[in-house]
Design a protein around this nucleic acid. Sequence first.
RNA 1: GCCAACGUAGCACAGUGGUAGUGCAGCUGAUUCGUAAUCAGCAGGUCAUGGGUUCGAAUCCCAUCGUUGGCUCCA
Length: 697
Amino acid sequence: MSDHADETNAAEDPAAAAGPSHAEGKPMTDLERIRHSAAHILATAILRIWPEAQFAAGPPVENGFYYDVDLPHRISPADFERIEAEMKKETKANHPFQRVEVSRDEALALAENGALASLGERPGTPSKFKLDIVQHIPEGEKITLYKNGDFTDLCAGPHVGRTGNVGAFKLTHVSSTYYKNDEKNPQLQRIYGTAFKNRTQLDEYFAMLEEAKKRDHRKLGKELELFTFDEDVGPGLPLWLPRGTAIIEELEKLAKETEFAAGYERVRTPNLARENMYLTSGHIPLYADSMFPPMELDDIKEKRRNLTKEYEETIRQQSYVSVWEARQRGIREEDLGAYVDFAIAHEIKEGNPPFELAEVLKRQLAIHKELSELPEPERYYLKPMNCPHHHKLFGAVPRSYRDLPLRLAEYGFCHRYEQSGELQGLMRVRSMQMNDAHIYCSEAQFESEFNAVNQMYLNYFKLFGFSKYQMRFSTHDPAKLGEKFVDNPELWKKTEDMVRDVLIKSGIPYVEVPNEAAFYGPKIDVQVWSAIGKEFTIATNQVDFAVPAKFGLKYKTRDNTEETPLCIHRAPLGTHERFIGFLIEHYAGNFPLWLSPEQVRVLPIGDEEPLVEYAQAVVKELRAEGVRATLDAGTDPIKAKIADAEKMKVHTMLVVGNRDLEAGNLSVRVHGKGNLGARPRGEVVADLLVSIKERRA
RNA sequence: GCCAACGUAGCACAGUGGUAGUGCAGCUGAUUCGUAAUCAGCAGGUCAUGGGUUCGAAUCCCAUCGUUGGCUCCA
């Protein structure tokens, strides 16, 4: 079943091809077999409750399985208990999974009789999706059914031996999907669940999910007062609180230092630009769906509106006059419409309209002329990317090969109109600050520039301790040239070959995915995995062979000819929004000292004057060195002050009591490590400064 | 954008047709303390918004906005 479905999908749908491994002919793992079998058991259970259910595909997926079902009843989590009880009966019964090979005709006949993904024949109601799937199985390929108890499904398998081998399962959520992911197809309910060999593993999985919830950047962001969203500001538009801003500024400092050392130059550009620039860049034809609608500067808006209204009025009058005219000529009522359309066209053509109509038409013509002569309103768009602005900067000064590679860097603010359903905390937002830079270089320089960028990623990953990452090399789909990708097949091929060569030579592990390139060229997305196994595309590195030419960018070569530069778009730290979202989950909010929003909090034991003065002096000294240090001068007992600081995950707490005051010490307590004991003030301060400077983990 | 669920004080939650509650945070006062929570008092809500049903709505219905989980899309 699902496997056939996936195979038919795979040819036209890259997402399916990139999906579960079995779709690419790799054998299923044991766990995948269990989950795939659980999908059949789910279908069995649903059919016992709703015999009219029609099933489409039910593969194992990363954390479980699903089955897509068409059913008038809307399944909700409230139904899960009932369905699970039926599933339990099926696993208790411990039916064998029987594989049956059938001919194409037999499979078609069964599907026609409604006997596929079914508990038996359902005369008059064919198994419509299974029928479609059978019809798409390539000629010559074996067609198999799998049966468990009364349930028979079209399925390539494999399965576990008996239903009882699915040791533990649980339904998790319902969502919707289109059959074969195509919105022209019927919408199906997708029932998700997970399954394991035994109860212990299932419990462990849910315990892991609970842990993951505690690390969720949305939860921690709220608790640690890093950022907030506000309905009045708008969805997907994060507001950075001071603590979150501290992290942003540390990252910018890191990027600026790194890029400066690597020969980048910093630039600044505004957040919007005129329509014309985005027509040139190709954003409006190819990327407009992801852009905020334009702002129109229109000082003759009133005039335009009035003229338009008047124009519409003449159209009404015109048909009114024509109808009157037609009646005069005795045209039958039912033919009026056709006559009027014809007559107007004819009489205008003949240059001989009746007087009243002539007047109306004359006026209409005049208004039309006036309208068309009005200047178009000026349109400004919020920038979705920094590249066009940077191209303008490249073009602002005559360039020679001596200027290349020219690396223009900017932490630019970009705005993209992401679909409302896509927004997710900081991970998908509509306003983002990008660690952007554009490297303009010659073809000969491409390889070394590209490798230098890759090296920069790897250094960052080491600094943050990202151990699991992968490069995704995204290429274009020739079928979508001119629609999703700039229409220049030769350059696509040339550039993609060039990038592939460099990737292979550099030895960095990568996977290639078709149809996911940027509209202007192939790209390499860098995927990283958080400590709890969540995967994100965090950084990107794209080659642009198209847009510099559209902007007419040129440089003088050594032999005094003109060349168009290549452009590498790169953002190793991605956007602040997603990167910090990821860091929050990666560190579970326990940031290393250098990134910590509140690096040091000094906690006097009590509020006696000399103690507080000592504490204040320590804070002042640290702040003078740029350390984010604060003082808790309240009257709470020290235990309460510590609890407060620990709750906010303050990195280092410096407890000062009379003992410390007398000895000139600071008692150091580090979040997550507890009390580390008292040491001389100077030593403690020096250590803090070194740790921050070296960005120690 | 589509499907579904959800929206009660700053936060976490209780309240399913009959007077809006609890804990933490906040404020005020007392407490002067050595490594994760001292005590007491006070204040805080148009129950997301707008309509409807009802004698009566946080509770039932509709719409809108937002959030969450998926689909599609992406840094």
